[in-house]
Design a binder for these strands. Structure first.
Lengths: 196, 196
DNA sequence: CATCAATACATACATTCTGTATGTTTAACT
DNA sequence: AGTTAAACATACAGAATGTATGTATTGATG
């Protein structure tokens, strides 16, 4: 005699997860991972801690989900602009600018770069970035190497170094430095890779 | 009738602080700031939590002291080698290599770069780095600008970007990438700043 | 459609940690 | 010698984390 089946389990789960992710993201950006408590998160989300620990292994797991979402968004942004460029070097520059802009939006620098590094560790963060945001960078560098457009350097270290240099740029912009002053330096660094 | 004055207060303080710093450093490097508890630290140091909270404001304050010590050590290393170089560009390269090497020693990358960024925040970490490790970098870049050896870019953003690029390099080496493969990329980046 | 199983929570609990408050010992000062 | 102050040591209050357990709603099944 129990009656109303208002919502399916799938929808219910999606809704709750979204609420938690939204609330978590806001708080993690504002106060960081460590300073944000789970009671705080669930209160902001309008659910209970039971729901949180049902859908996520622990606080870190919720955080990881948020980082993955942010990385995915950045990756999508890069792909959106990186397609049209005259040279491979230009493509690298365009993609780099897109990365910095996308990462300094919505507080993503805090989640994906600052907290992500400390909470998830370099290894796991790198793996996430590899899945979402560094696909086109690797392709671009690989193409550049094949074409002989850049100095003969090892691909993987190159991917890492360009990637972390861009992380640095995003961090600086996030810290308040002017994108208009950071961008030309990023481009200069990339020029350093090119064979003149 | 109380007698033995075995040790002066100054010596006593120095000794206790050193024990705490040494134990804290070891644990922070191994497990990170958040995962290291103060009971753990004082146990490893052979003192009590009372001693810790007497000499430091809180856990973060102990951590800050450790970061400052590590940054100072890196700064000293840089100054040791950065003096002799033919050109300003060479000086920048030499200093950069020294920074990466010194930072990837003794687990300093973990304290000064990874945990430092999340625990102290970008602003405070930057201020510490400015006091200890970026003096010669700023001088070097200033000289290079004056000499017209590098492209005409704003000094402060330049300091920030080179600095964070080097942070990235140190992080990668710390994560296991080969210094021999990272170093030439760092040098290439610096070449990108130079006017050919 | 009645019942059983499983998912999605909600609540209670045990443990642990943090910072502070307070007590005690030892050095420093007069 | 006696008082002050520094250097701890111990006890405590509050909060947070993850788990265990209880309940309600959905999904599957005969």
């Amino acid at each position: 005699m129990q009656v109303k089946k208002a919502i399916s389990n799938a929808k219910r789960t999606e809704k709750t997860r979204k609420l938690l992710i939204k609330a978590g993201k806001k708080l993690f950006i504002e106060k960081g991972f460590a300073a944000t408590s789970t009671p705080e998160i669930v209160k902001a989300a309008g659910v209970t801690r039971g729901a949180l620990y049902h859908h996520f292994e622990d606080k870190k797991d919720l955080f990881r989900a948020i980082v993955e979402i942010d990385c995915e968004a950045v990756g999508i942004e890069i792909d959106r602009v990186a397609l049209d460029a005259d040279s491979v070097i230009d493509a690298l520059k365009t993609g780099s600018s897109a990365f910095v802009k996308a990462t300094t939006t919505q507080g993503r620098a805090r989640t994906t770069l600052i907290e992500g590094l400390a909470v998830l560790g370099q290894k796991e963060l790198l793996e996430i970035e590899d899945r979402f945001t560094r696909l086109s960078l690797r392709q671009g560098l690989e193409a550049a190497l094949e074409q002989g457009a850049i100095k003969s350097l090892s691909l993987e270290p190159l991917v890492e170094m360009v990637s972390s240099m861009l992380d640095g740029a995003a961090l600086k912009v996030d810290a308040g430095f002017d994108l208009a002053e950071i961008e030309p330096i990023v481009h200069a660094f990339i020029d350093g890779l090119a064979l003149e």
